[in-house]
Computed example of a mutant assay.
Amino acid sequence: MNVDLFDYDLPEELIAQTPLANRTESRLMTLNRTTGEVGHHRFYELDQFLKAGDLLVLNDTRVIPARLFGLKADTGAKAEVLLLRELGENRWEALVRPGKKLKAGARIVFGLESEELAAANAPAAPGNPPQPLPSPKAPLVAVVEEEGDMGGRIIRFEYEGIFPEILDQLGQMPLPPYIKERLEDKERYQTVYAKHEGSAAAPTAGLHFTKDYLRHLEERGVQIAYLTLHVGLGTFRPVSADKVEEHDMHAEYYVLPPETAEAFNRTKAAGGRVVAVGTTSARTLETAARDAAAAQGEEGFRLSACSGWTDIFLYPGVPIRAIDGLVTNFHLPKSTLLMLISALAGRENVLRAYEEAVKERYRFFSFGDAMLIY
């Protein structure tokens, strides 16, 4: 299947740069995956499409302020580090810029002004011992240990204190590259139910919910359950292969807790629908369902609590086993996320809906409007 089949034209001015003041005021396009019928609503009208007994599954990952701007310890040149994955013992997988200048052994300091670094690096006066490296004076120091491809590095941090607190003070939210505006309130790139830190990007479909609206849904009999998938920046990586089937999917860590697995089993047994909030929730549930079906058979399988790394790639032709519906945002042309929703609703239905979304001036991508596929 050719990747170009998932392309569409999007005017740049439709890419949302800032979130709405009220999360539930976003527009909501509905897409019936059987008939292809499209409807236009507001997000607070989602309750019209959910029934008592349905199960809404949300990803409670929390984005870390993973983008760090610092200075090379030896020259004072500007350097940037983007944290991707924690490896333990203060070591992280990261992307760095400029990659050509940050070789193994390079040290990057954070929280120092260039003047402070210059003073720390000043040559010692004759007869005095050499000045130490600026590490003790910097709140945070990164040492490049290993080099990888395309700016990838393994780095080790040196610091005194509590790392999450230091990161919260020095780091910035790793907003997608298509967002050019500065985000004043970091919490607007978090869901209101974000709990487990570890994501390099937000599960943006969940940004439309408020605590009050989730309570409202529960009062109407909709079940709410949570799982965790730590979103990696691979979610924004373009598909470089010409054929969909040849794309090398990135892996992300997930946890499906026992209470969510049981809620899934109970809902399916009672004839209710499982609606994933976001492609990350969908990928987690479909990973668990794929493995359960392989072990128990396609009919009547039950989910169990599980965790691990998933590189599941969903596109038309790959079976959807777990979810009956999906709350999602509008996705980039030729992206794996657009392919995922096409696996659920059909490529032609999705592209027709996107054409209408452009015509109706919906807001696209992370801070944009929502779609319900049901």
Results as ranks from 00 to 15, higher is better:
G39P: 02
E299M: 01
G221T: 06
D324Y: 10
G271N: 05
P98L: 00
N329S: 02
Y193H: 12
E115P: 06
E115Q: 15
R42F: 12
A118C: 09
F236S: 13
A353M: 10
F330Q: 11
A200W: 10
K180G: 00
D324M: 08
G232S: 02
L167V: 01
G161R: 08
Y253S: 14
Q48M: 10
Y8P: 10
K243T: 04
G39H: 01
L83E: 00
L326R: 04
S304V: 13
R215I: 06
R363L: 13
E160R: 15
K51M: 11
A94K: 05
E245W: 06
A122S: 08
Q172F: 12
G152A: 13
G234N: 04
V277P: 08
F330P: 05
P98H: 00
Y226P: 04
L55W: 11
I224W: 11
A345H: 04
H196Q: 14
H230V: 02
E165Q: 15
G88I: 03
V222Q: 11
E12D: 13
F330E: 07
L46F: 13
I312Q: 05
A289W: 06
F209Q: 03
G88N: 10
P136I: 04
S335F: 04
A119G: 06
V109Q: 02
D185C: 08
A194W: 10
P203Y: 06
S342W: 04
E89Q: 13
L58G: 09
G234Q: 07
A263T: 03
V358E: 09
P98Y: 02
V350A: 01
Y8N: 04
T30R: 11
I64T: 00
A269M: 04
R33A: 12
R107I: 08
A343H: 11
G148W: 06
D168N: 15
G325N: 12
I162D: 14
A200N: 08
A282R: 01
G111A: 07
R347S: 03
L31R: 06
A343N: 09
L117I: 01
D47H: 15
V81P: 05
L332K: 05
V57D: 07
A251T: 06
P203F: 08
T328S: 09
F6G: 01
W309C: 04
E299G: 00
E348T: 14
L46W: 08
G161I: 08
T18I: 07
P174T: 09
N90F: 01
A52K: 11
A205M: 12
A251W: 10
A201G: 09
D4S: 15
R91K: 14
A94P: 05
N121Q: 15
E113M: 15
P65C: 00
L285Q: 04
I15D: 11
V141H: 00
I108K: 00
A292Y: 02
Y253K: 09
E286P: 06
P176Q: 06
K51I: 01
R302I: 05
S240A: 09
P132S: 07
A225I: 03
G308Q: 12
T18W: 03
G300S: 00
E262F: 02
T279L: 05
T228L: 08
L84Q: 10
Q296T: 03
W309P: 02
F49E: 02
